[in-house]
Write a protein that binds this DNA or RNA. Structure first.
Lengths: 206, 206, 206, 206
DNA sequence: AATGAATGAGTGTTCATTCAT
DNA sequence: AATGAATGAACACTCATTCAT
């Protein structure tokens, strides 16, 4: 945001970034939603454009190709998810309730498995793009891991690999995609609570 | 009416060429692998055919269209997974070790989130096809749920919804898709053990 | 039907002609019906085979390819039409009534315009095949023309080119394909009578 | 809200390139010709595209699918035929000569039987598309019927069903497709005259 | 800043045809 | 006499991408 106009043509990093942010943000939001809902292949640039009320060519005006749009869109949602999560985990109350809250948030947004989407999209992305997305994802996991680490240090939860714990925690949340489960239990809120409770107490009787 | 009705009525034409189901099974196996690895859209019938060393038209000889092939392929892997799992869960030893074994098996096979794949493919499948796949999937979950149910009855694990438990358990296994995790820990075997342990003991300190 | 077994391999003319006539005739009849109903392209050999309860390969056993089957099928129906027409035109009664009868017959069978079908099929036929069909068609027209010729000689109808007359006569019969007309008038019989009357009296008032 | 609402709101982006409808009309004309010559199935979009010097994808840019192109193409020729016919039938001179003129025009254009083509295409068209084409066709028949009606009222021709008359009249014109006839008589003009004369005077001697 | 037009490469699907049995 | 298996060529259709304006 600072020294943008200094260099005449800065190649790496976020590519085209001129244009009224209005339209660009609109495209980004729409694309994010569609990608998270349908995955990489199923979303056509035509559909993104239509949903924004612009033409395909306009999308290309802001994003050099589908891979770039996908990358920015994912970084966009990861950023939001991260920010939301920071607010929640740093909030007050016992860890377990904060985790339930995080679970509720995630299960309300993500519709398709992140890993599966990446597996689908990776072949079309540049290495750099994959790395950037991975970084965004890692940030989220590092955030959760740090929370777990702290909780272990304070004896709030028992000892284990915090990073693995973060992955297991988020993996569990994909249960929300399974219709039978969520329908049976009616509300996302209830499901998320149950899952966290399950994870919290473990299988072993005590 | 001569000597025709004496013999078991040998059907005319080229006999079913004992080695022939080979091709069909070959296609089925290949398709299963590719679909589980890349999802529905990404797998082209061309690629399936090529991987089998036959032509696209040959695939159509055995399966009337992509949706049909997909359906049979998934039922194929679900059947195998179910059979494998039956063997393991009915085996000897403590539940926890049997679950680790199941986890190891699953993580060695499934590459992409089942739900995500179904979400991708559903629009192209007939209702009946979706139902058949769902049934196959349910069978697996019912199997696990019954195991959990029994373990609860015997006080081996603490009480909770066994079906939800089954979904959470399988969801956790998708962690294997996340390269960093599995790579860091080197072996699928170790990861699966750690995950089951995590699930077993829960987060709460005791 | 006579000196078939004399020469070892007689190439020209009707090609393969072994096999139980049963099946062959069945295929011929079925194909005739389908071709007359749907035209050349729309009829797949698969559909012919299925309608006969045999396999595609069996069709090939009797007819070397689609063009050959088409040719034989058309000659088959033309022969029948010719025979039927001979019976009618040589019958008793005034010409006008015999023509109405011919009209009724034709309109009951032919569903698609002969010329249009030939235009569709010609590019796939050999010159010889086209000629043979044309000959069969011509025979029908020559038959009608001879009838007209005789009627003119006897002063039963006024003088004109008998061959053109035959073509005009048969062309008029295609009116039967136009649903509105035939539906309005309810019966094929009535329509054919009306058409012949129209042709008979002409437009000019007298 | 500044100086925006003053100007007639010049739409952004590349203007409609005055010469551009060229391509669409070109495709329409070419398709019309090919469909009228070869029918629905035989015309591939590839061939249409090639004949226009564009790619298949360009055809799809203007027409959403083959059925749509077919519909527009037929409406296009029906419109032209209607307009031409209006000019002729409303012209001066005796009805018989005007009909000869109409015959000459039609026989110069239509190459395949309309009904047969519709029978071939209908299964692929939407109901609405079929209706639109039928409407266009009916318009032509109603036009001719009205001419006949008037002529009957004025005693110029003898009484009969004017709509049937229109169908018979146009059916007769398909004689032009039969090569032998038209070739024998050398010119379309002469054939059309002869046909109309035949229809005019009828078969019955006077 | 945004667009209409055009394209090339690919996808699922169909079908006539062949051949060993 | 009849068949199961396999194929190649075509076809309708989609989509990411480019470019002049």
């Amino acid at each position: 945001m600072t020294s943008k106009s200094e260099q005449p043509k800065r190649r790496p990093g976020r590519p085209k970034a001129t244009g009224s942010p209005q339209t660009m943000v609109q495209i980004l939001k729409t694309a994010s939603f569609l990608f998270m809902e349908q995955g990489y292949e199923k979303v056509s640039l035509e559909s993104v454009a239509q949903a924004c009320g612009v033409t395909k060519a306009s999308v290309y005006y802001y994003f050099s190709n589908k891979a770039a749009l996908f990358t920015e869109a994912l970084l966009f949602v990861l950023k939001i998810a991260h920010d939301q999560t920071v607010l929640i985990v740093n909030g007050p109350g016992p860890l377990r309730e904060r985790l339930s809250e995080v679970a509720k948030r995630h299960m309300g947004n993500a519709h398709i498995d992140f890993e599966t989407m990446m597996r689908e999209a990776s072949p079309e992305l540049t290495e750099e793009q994959v790395d950037r997305i991975r970084d965004g994802e890692q940030a989220l996991h590092r955030l959760l891991a740090s929370v777990f680490r702290r909780a272990m240090d304070e004896g709030e939860i028992s000892e284990s690999d915090p990073m693995l714990l973060s992955h297991v925690f988020t993996a569990t949340l994909t249960v929300r995609n399974r219709k039978e489960i969520v329908n049976d239990l009616q509300t996302v809120g209830q499901t998320s609570s149950e899952i966290v409770q399950l994870l919290w107490r473990g299988l072993e009787p005590r």
